[in-house]
Amino acid sequence: MTDNGTTPLRVAVVEDQPLFRSMLEHTLSRTAGLQVVAAVGTAAEAARRLRPGTVDCVIMDIDLPDGNGIALGVTLRRKMPELGILLLSAHDAMDLLLDLPADVAAGWGYLSKTSSTSEEVLVNAVRAAAVGKTVLDPQLLARVTPRAGSDVARLTDRQYEVLRLLASGLSNAGIGERLGITEKSVQNHVNAMYATLGIDADPQRNPRVTAALRLLEETGPVG
């Protein structure tokens, strides 16, 4: 399900730290178009309460007291193929998204708890994950650079900038607004970026997801 302005996007929070869980629940509950349907602290409780037809996106900590958030996410996704999953961690663990099984690789996001993530970034990431996009932490993306010899390193500065914003979950309209260019110009940059990265229009694969994962795969920390 997507948030179409009339049907609330149903969100669950799986976070073992009570204060942080409460903060997430409060922030999301007062956001128009979102409805928090569960806020739990363990993998076992999440597995018990989150059933098909009850939730559209889950925000979960990677490190849970009784299990791993990624393993829980894989289990939930196989029961609910359209479920969006937004991972949270106190560490930079974005690379873990590269190890996801192929059948559940789309619709995952990653935000760091320590990168001063804003409410806007959080809500945008929830909405993007819920519609099958791969969303990466924009603060962490700002600290990486393309690896020498990679296809990402062949992108122009503007194409690379567009790719980072795309991987942050922004739409073409959002990217255009951020860069001060038209949506058509953004699409032209996206098309050129896809060509350089060899991303085709396979209807079985979301090219924006593929592009985000390529960015993750072919970059590393600055310095």
Rank of each mutant, 00 (worst) to 15 (best):
L179R: 02
V162S: 02
T210E: 15
T117N: 10
W108H: 11
N124D: 14
I85F: 04
Q139Y: 07
A201W: 03
P81N: 03
K133S: 15
D99S: 12
L111G: 04
E217D: 15
V126F: 04
L215T: 12
L165W: 02
A211P: 03
G149V: 15
S150D: 13
A106V: 11
E183P: 00
L136D: 08
R158I: 15
D200E: 14
V74R: 00
D157T: 13
R164D: 12
D103T: 06
R147T: 15
R164P: 04
Y110G: 10
A102G: 06
I199L: 12
V152H: 04
S168C: 11
S89R: 02
V135R: 03
S116Y: 11
L111K: 01
A148I: 14
I181Y: 04
L140T: 12
A130D: 09
G107E: 12
D137T: 10
V104R: 00
M94I: 09
S89Q: 00
A129R: 02
T196G: 07
I175C: 05
E82M: 01
E161C: 09
P221F: 02
G198N: 09
G174W: 03
V186Q: 06
L179E: 02
L197R: 01
R143Y: 09
V144A: 06
Q187K: 08
E217T: 12
V126D: 14
L179C: 06
L111E: 09
G149L: 12
P138S: 04
S150A: 11
D151V: 08
L100W: 01
E82G: 01
E82T: 07
S168W: 07
A106H: 01
S185K: 09
E177F: 06
G132E: 11
I199W: 03
L166E: 10
G107V: 09
T156W: 05
R164Y: 05
A90F: 00
T117W: 02
W108F: 13
L86G: 06
A128L: 11
D137E: 08
A167H: 07
R147K: 13
S118W: 02
R164I: 14
A212E: 11
V121F: 00
Y110F: 13
G149C: 14
